[in-house]
Amino acid sequence: MKIAALQMVSTPDVERNLAAAARLAAEAAAAGAQLIALPEYFCLMGRNDRDKLGIAERLGEGPIQAALATIAREHRLWLIGGTLPLRTADPERVRNSSLVFAPDGTRVAHYDKMHLFAFDNGRERYDEGRVLEAGSAPVAFDAGGWRVGLSVCYDLRFPELYRALMHPPCDLIAVPSAFTYPTGEAHWELLLRARAVENQCYVIAPAQGGRHENGRRTWGHSLIADPWGQVLACRDEGEGIVLAELHRQRLAEVRQQLPALAHRRL
């Protein structure tokens, strides 16, 4: 299966972001991608955290979800829709949710980001808990016989989530992200390759990558890694697509030669 990670530099304008996502998806589909993944907050990089509240949708309705379903249906592909804000019972909180659409446009999976990012280095400060409500359960889905595990950005630092997704083992793990520049520079590739190696599966990591209109700079470096931790393709910064092929034989070889998953004791 050919897959594509779509790298974006999203803006505070939802319509512009949806248009960019559709354009990149069309490019990936034309290149033969059967599964594509958008980055975290592909639909909005707001000027402040509370901007998410203004565009939040109810699950199953709204223009952002409709746009994702249309992309999947028009190009007949599996679409991991990065993340978008979904409403909760608390009007001051949203879920940071990753929705998956099948080639016929139906929603087949829904994962709410479990781990909420906080960071303060004296120059940059983030606290997602101010407006986000954390999810509570791991989610995986079947994409034409490939088992795909879902996660989002800061989840990457919690290997126990990925271990929970490996019963049965995933063939591919998705990590749509908007890593900050300093944390991405230090840890992004290191953590992604570690998750691939320890779980002996492919990893697709579509990211925000560049200088945004709100002044924030994200790390980018969207990549796809194989079960041995080899980076198959990567894009440093700027809008674009990252393509690679998944091979069942490669999964089988790695798991047979070094049967670490079979040796788990916890």
Results as ranks from 00 to 15, higher is better:
K2D: 11
A4P: 04
Q7Y: 03
M8Q: 03
M8N: 01
M8R: 01
V9L: 06
P12M: 06
P12A: 08
A19K: 09
A22I: 00
A26V: 00
A28S: 06
L35G: 14
A37C: 01
L44A: 10
R47A: 14
D51F: 00
G54S: 15
G54P: 04
G54W: 13
E57R: 05
A66L: 09
A66N: 12
A67K: 03
A69C: 10
I71N: 07
R73M: 05
R73A: 05
I80A: 03
G81L: 07
L84H: 01
P85E: 05
T88K: 10
P91W: 11
R93H: 06
R95P: 02
S97I: 09
S97A: 15
S98W: 01
P103Q: 05
G105H: 04
V108H: 01
A109C: 09
H110Y: 15
D112L: 11
M114K: 12
Y126E: 15
D127W: 03
L132D: 08
V139S: 08
W146A: 05
V148S: 02
G149S: 01
G149W: 05
R157Q: 08
R157K: 12
P159Q: 11
L161A: 07
A164I: 00
P168Q: 12
P169E: 09
P176W: 00
A178C: 14
T180D: 15
P182Y: 07
G184D: 09
G184N: 10
E185P: 11
A186T: 08
R193F: 03
R193L: 04
E198K: 08
A207W: 01
G209R: 08
G210N: 08
E213Y: 01
W219D: 10
L223G: 02
I224D: 01
P227V: 05
A233L: 12
R235I: 04
D236K: 13
I241C: 09
V242F: 07
V242R: 06
L243I: 13
R248E: 13
Q249K: 10
R255C: 06
L266P: 07
